[in-house]
């Protein structure tokens, strides 16, 4: 199948190095300490953060740092065919782990000893790149909850189809079976916190694809920063003195 037309357009009309439209909204869940909705094109994810709060299971309590937990789930209505997915299947366990690890890399856990932070992410609409969207939503929700962080983690995926590196794959491109590289970075520190790839890629093309994904992450970071800045300003001026 042809994923990039001779004119250089992809199936959904984007250029190979073009991202889908981003949209973020802070404060989607009233009772959570922090929450956000993050959209990348048709992929839509909601994230809620609770905590730092008292550790529920005393045996997991750590005296020098906070416990970070993460739960990923996909709404039944999120995919094209509506199906009930068992909670805690292999895929969602894996993604929960991935999100937790990349979030732990940026949260300053040592500032909140003997407490726990819960992150819940749910996919409302799945159209490829749910992993990246979840990480971006979780970052926003953590920042909204006022949890101290080293830097903002942002994530973006890139692929390689028809000998062209493609940024931010959607569902059709994702299911083509080509390589799919998901990268998560700390944009200010320039550290990679997440790198996943299925399928194989030659070394030199891999570098190109990864570079493209990193550029995508930086674009996401800029957008997230704008949203947060706007939100902080609004809270401050409304409060007054």
């Amino acid at each position: 199948m042809e994923y990039v037309s001779p004119e250089g357009l992809r199936l959904d009309g984007r250029r190979p190095m073009e991202m889908r439209q981003l949209r973020a909204e802070i404060g989607a869940v009233a009772k959570a300490d922090g929450s956000a909705v993050f959209e990348m094109g048709n992929t839509k994810v909601i994230a809620a953060v609770y905590g730092p709060r008292e550790v529920q299971n005393r045996s997991q309590q750590m005296n020098d740092q906070a416990l970070v937990r993460c739960e990923y789930s996909m709404a039944n209505f999120s995919t094209g065919d509506r199906r009930r997915k068992p909670k805690g299947d292999r895929r969602s366990t894996e993604i929960s782990l991935v999100i937790r690890q990349s979030m732990e890399a940026c949260i300053l856990t040592h500032l909140m000893p003997r407490s726990q932070i819960d992150i819940f992410v749910q996919v409302l609409q799945a159209d490829g790149g749910t992993r990246s969207a979840c990480i971006n939503a979780a970052t926003l929700a953590l920042a909204d909850a006022g949890i101290p962080m080293r830097d903002l983690v942002t994530s973006c995926s890139a692929g390689y189809l028809n000998t062209t590196p493609l940024l931010d794959l959607n569902y059709v491109e994702d299911s083509a079976g080509g390589p799919d590289v998901t990268v998560g970075i700390l944009s200010k520190l320039d550290n990679v916190t997440l790198l996943q790839m299925d399928a194989k890629l030659p070394m030199d093309t891999f570098e190109n694809v990864m570079q493209l994904a990193i550029e995508g992450c930086k674009a996401v970071a800029n957008y997230i920063r704008e949203v947060l800045q706007e939100n902080t300003k609004q809270l401050e001026y409304r409060r007054g003195v």
């Binding site: 920042a143 962080m149 080293r150 830097d151 903002l152 944009s187 200010k188 920063r225 947060l228 800045q229 902080t232 300003k233 609004q234 401050e236 001026y237 409304r238 007054g240 003195v241």
Partner: peptide, 22 residues
């Protein structure tokens, strides 16, 4: 009303708000 509030507060304390990693 909200714009008015914004203009009132921005006079007293401009550009003091930061986000993570600023």
């Amino acid at each position: 009303a909200l714009e008015r509030l914004e203009s009132l507060s921005s006079k007293s304390n401009p550009n003091a708000s930061v986000t993570v990693a600023d």
